[in-house]
Nucleic acid binder design. Structure first.
Length: 391
DNA sequence: TCTGGGGTCCTAGGACCC
DNA sequence: TCTGGGGTCCTAGGACCC
């Protein structure tokens, strides 16, 4: 049977939600990401009206302010976005038993064999669009193809409120018709490298041999490029990501130089990570500390511990050791981050029996505090070390 | 213009083992 | 005496995506 996949993409999601909830913002340039004057902020989402001024995602907010000083600038309400996202994902699950959400505003649907229920792919897509518009007031763009990879690119072909169906057999000519930067998986570095090699279009890639591509770009990227322009690329549906990680980081308004403040900032980030590990009921053996200096150079150092790390104080201890090893004094720090990689489900390993009794007690105490915080968010329980205003 | 935050996956080199 | 080959784990850095 011919496979049919949909890729559903919510149009300018955060900005659209703001326009939905605030009718006075409609038909006006809306920029979510920060307020004018917020240092070091970037644009998260720009409404289509704002895009006309050249504003786009990931742009420094200060530049967006210059391009359109009269735009409506907002920091964003992520709880609200998640709420609407899950409502939409629920609607999508009425159309396919196989929905993979790949981000807050995107999902793949396996629509193979649903013709008798919803009609042709185009008819099904229109039904979904209408349903979501009626139930939430938001518009989406849908890409349809025989592979998820091509469906994903097709959803971006006509936006907003668009639909693009790449029929079986048309994948290759569709891919060859695109500008290079529209190819999902080619980022700025690979694009530069391609241009440097005189490759300006997907057809130029098409003409190169596998061995040429793998020599220049490495085995993986080379094979990817070769397959992508032929529409041969696909991902596996329903494959679980291994090596799950939990991380938090913070960019400071002003660079940090004081050792005590640096450690306190790490302590704060560790609280966030530990809380989320508690929420997901996981532990980790690998802790990564990330430092971005004032000149934007970024380094990381990690340690794989022989014991499971499952509470904030232990995590902080490891981070202090890592900082000691890596930190170059005299250089200002603009960002600090902490990640726990390769997290594992609590109770899933023999290793836990190696966990000391004292540590176990400590973890239980922290969990009790988290539970209390969840139940009574109005009560402030703060560790003494936390500074509320590092900047 | 001066570069967020949360992720995943890949690469290359070193250590260690058989 | 002057150096194999494969496998696995770990580390640091990098590319990419939304």
């Amino acid at each position: 049977m011919q496979n049919i996949y949909f890729h559903v993409d919510l149009d300018a999601f955060f900005a659209s939600v703001e326009q939905l909830d605030h009718p006075e913002y409609r038909n006006k340039p809306v920029v979510v990401g920060g307020l004018p004057g917020d240092r070091r902020a970037v644009v998260s989402t720009a409404s289509y009206e704002a895009r006309k001024y050249g504003i786009h995602s990931a742009m420094p907010l200060s530049k967006a302010v210059q391009l359109c000083p009269n735009a409506i600038f907002l920091r964003g309400r992520h709880k609200r976005y998640h709420e609407l996202s899950s409502i939409i994902m629920n609607i999508l699950s009425n159309y396919s038993p196989d929905v993979i959400q790949i981000s807050i505003d995107e999902a793949f649907l396996d629509m193979t064999g649903t013709e008798r229920l919803f009609g042709s792919p185009e008819q099904a897509a229109l039904k979904i669009k209408k349903d979501i518009q009626e139930k939430t007031g938001l518009t989406i763009s849908i890409g349809i193809a025989g592979t998820m990879y091509v469906a994903k690119i097709a959803s971006g072909y006509r936006k907003p409120n668009g639909m693009t169906y790449i029929k079986p057999g048309d994948e290759e000519s569709f891919m060859l018709s695109l500008p290079l930067e529209k190819i999902w998986g080619i980022g700025s570095k690979t694009l530069q490298k391609l241009l440097f090699s005189g490759i300006k279009t997907p057809s130029d890639i098409y003409k190169k041999s596998i061995s040429y591509l793998t020599t220049i770009f490495g085995d993986n990227t080379g094979m990817f490029l070769f397959n992508a322009v032929r529409g041969n690329k696909d991902m596996k549906f329903g494959e679980e990501a291994k090596n799950h990680s939990i991380s938090a980081e913070r960019t400071f308004d002003y660079d940090l130089t004081d050792r005590y403040i640096i450690e306190t900032a790490i302590f704060e980030i560790v609280q966030t990570v530990a809380y989320r590990m508690y929420k997901e009921n996981v532990y980790s053996n690998t802790i990564v500390l990330k430092i971005r200096y004032e000149d934007f150079s970024t380094v990381s150092i990690q340690e794989t511990t022989s014991f499971p790390v499952k509470n904030a104080d232990k995590m902080f201890e490891v981070c202090q050791k890592l900082l000691e090893k890596k930190y170059r004094q005299g250089k200002g720090i603009r960002l600090l981050g902490v990640a726990c990689t390769n997290v594992k489900e609590n109770g899933s390993s023999m290793q836990e029996s190696l966990f000391s009794f004292e540590e176990e007690k400590h973890t239980k105490m922290e969990s009790a505090v988290y539970k209390l915080k969840d139940k009574h968010p109005e009560i402030k329980i703060q560790k003494a070390r936390l500074l509320n205003n590092i900047n």
